[in-house]
Amino acid sequence: MTDHALRLLRQDRRLAELAAFPFGFDLDRAAQGHVEEVCLASGGPLETVAGDDTGGTYFVCADGSVLYADSEGAAGIIGPSVDEALELLIGLPGWRDYTGLSPDDGEEKILACAAETEDGIREYYGIDEERAELRAALGFPERSPVELVGRLRAALLRTEPDFVLSTRTRDARTTDWARPGPRCGSPCSRRDAPISPACGRATPRHGVRSPRTRSGAGSPFEPRSSTAPRAISSCYGICCGTRHGRR
């Protein structure tokens, strides 16, 4: 569990810019902080290291794990280290489209989801050359989407009980979020809408949102299907494949 890649990004402006766009890990946004004051319910420390164009924030926990919190009350561990979290962001652009998937869904379904998500991104932004350059510079191997989905699933399942996010005014209480639900690529997916690689969420074709702005962004944990699964707690919940409303 290392932060070697994070040190390289902080030392090289070109690499930092690639990580920010199109992969949604913007070091400059760390200074802005999260949209509200948050803390771990366990009392552990949090270090803000980056943000994205949707108002989401990347935190490093005491053990090196990376916790992502969106602007609408969802949060979860996405990697045991900054390096592994960055491998995920680079290897699965639009990674929030995959939070409802697990290795049990099988290679065919996962690869189909990856193809659909990345094809949608390519309609508006380049990712292939940028991914190859950033991977090479950071020393990351090329990994299959199947392996990365497995890593993401395992990381999200580690969120409870030690990494539940709370605020000073509301207690953290999570819902039953671990059961699998509808998957990426379901018939109700909005295939006619572009996807921001920084958030993995479909946006209307009219007035495409720039991935470098925070305005107009919805929850990046909300999959593109209006009936896709989502998990939310009364304060901060973990998105990992079940549908629950705010309580």
Rank of each mutant, 00 (worst) to 15 (best):
M1E: 14
R10T: 04
R13P: 08
R14L: 06
R14A: 09
A16K: 03
A16L: 01
E17G: 04
A19D: 05
A20Y: 00
F23L: 08
D26P: 03
L27D: 04
D28F: 02
D28A: 12
R29T: 01
R29V: 00
A30V: 05
A31Q: 15
V35H: 09
E36K: 05
V38M: 13
V38R: 06
A41L: 06
A41W: 00
A41T: 02
S42H: 09
G43E: 15
G44I: 01
V49I: 12
Y58D: 01
A62E: 06
D63E: 10
D63G: 05
G64M: 07
S65C: 12
S65D: 02
V66C: 02
L67M: 04
L67F: 02
D70N: 03
D70Q: 02
E72L: 13
S81E: 04
S81Y: 05
V82G: 03
V82C: 10
E84C: 08
E84G: 05
E87W: 04
E87K: 07
E87N: 06
L88C: 02
G91K: 04
G91F: 02
G91L: 03
P93N: 15
G94M: 10
W95F: 13
T99Q: 11
T99W: 09
G106R: 08
G106Q: 09
E107D: 12
E107A: 13
E107V: 06
E108S: 14
L111E: 14
L111A: 12
A112C: 09
E116Y: 11
E118K: 07
D119S: 15
I121Y: 08
E123Y: 15
Y125F: 15
G126T: 06
G126A: 14
E130F: 14
R135T: 07
R135Q: 13
A136E: 15
A137C: 12
G139E: 03
F140L: 13
P141E: 12
R143A: 07
R143D: 11
S144E: 04
P145V: 09
P145H: 11
P145I: 12
V146I: 10
E147R: 10
V149A: 08
R151K: 09
L152W: 03
A154L: 01
A154M: 02
A154F: 09
L156M: 09
L156S: 05
R158F: 04
R158H: 06
E160L: 10
F163I: 03
F163S: 01
V164N: 07
S166A: 12
T167A: 08
T167L: 09
R168K: 14
D171R: 13
A172C: 00
A172N: 00
A172F: 00
R173M: 10
T175Q: 10
D176N: 14
W177A: 11
R179F: 15
G181C: 03
C184R: 11
P187H: 03
P187R: 02
S189E: 06
D192L: 14
D192F: 15
A193Q: 11
P194H: 13
P194K: 09
C199T: 00
C199D: 02
G200L: 03
R205F: 15
H206E: 14
G207S: 14
P211R: 07
P211T: 05
G218D: 03
G218R: 02
P223D: 00
S226Q: 14
P229N: 07
R230I: 10
R230K: 13
S233F: 01
S233C: 01
S234A: 15
C240I: 01
T242H: 12
R243D: 11
R243P: 08
R247H: 12
